[in-house]
C-alpha cells in the first residue's frame, strides 16, 4: 500500500528497460552457496537503504543499482568480510543515511535513548499514581 508510491516513483524515474539490457551483477539475484554466509548477507541487505529509491532496502528493491549493491554485499561476505565491515564500508561512502540501523553517535544519541526515557517515564507515572493513592487512603483513614 505504501511503498507503492516509492515503487511508482522509481519506475517513473528510471528507464528500467534500458538499464536491464545489461546482465545483472553476478550475485544480484543469486544466493551464496554457504547458507550461513547467505543468511548474514540477507539480514544485512534488509538493513541497507537503496540509494535510488529513497525508501526501500536493497533486499526489496528492483532498481538495477540495488542489484549491484546486493552483489557487492554478497561478494564481500563470501570473501570473508563481516557484515559490520561491509556496512562501515558503505557508511564511509554514503554516511549514516545508507543504513536503516542508525549507528549510535552524537546525532542519533537522543533517538536511542528515547525508548529508555519513555519507559522510565511510564514507570514513574504509574508509580506516582499508585503511591499517591496509598497516601490518599491513609489520609482518608
Amino acid at each position: 500500500m505504501t511503498k507503492l508510491f516509492a515503487l511508482i516513483a522509481l519506475l517513473l524515474a528510471a528507464p528500467v528497460a534500458a538499464q536491464n539490457a545489461l546482465p545483472a551483477a553476478p550475485y544480484a539475484h543469486q544466493q551464496l552457496d554457504d547458507p550461513v554466509q547467505e543468511e548474514k548477507a540477507r539480514s544485512l541487505m534488509e538493513e541497507l537503504r537503496c540509494l535510488k529509491c529513497q525508501s526501500q532496502s536493497i533486499a526489496d528493491s528492483d532498481a538495477p543499482m540495488a542489484g549491484d549493491m546486493r552483489s557487492q554485499v554478497r561478494e564481500r561476505i563470501a570473501a570473508g568480510a563481516t557484515p559490520e565491515e561491509v556496512r562501515s564500508w558503505l557508511i564511509e561512502r554514503y554516511g549514516d543515511w545508507v543504513t536503516y540501523n542508525p549507528p549510535v553517535n552524537a546525532v542519533t544519541g537522543p533517538l536511542w535513548i528515547a525508548p529508555i526515557v519513555l519507559l522510565i517515564l511510564a514507570i514513574w507515572l504509574a508509580r506516582g499514581r499508585f503511591r499517591r493513592r496509598k497516601n490518599n487512603q491513609k489520609d482518608a483513614s
Binding site: 551483477a25 540509494l51 535510488k52 538495477p64 543499482m65 549491484d68 549493491m69 552483489s71 557487492q72 558503505l90 564511509e92 561512502r93 554514503y94
Partner: peptide
C-alpha cells in the same frame, strides 16, 4: 556493475 560508483559514494 556500479563498483566504482559505490567506491566513490555516488548514488546516481
Amino acid at each position: 556493475r556500479s563498483i566504482v560508483q559505490l567506491e566513490l559514494g555516488s548514488s546516481g
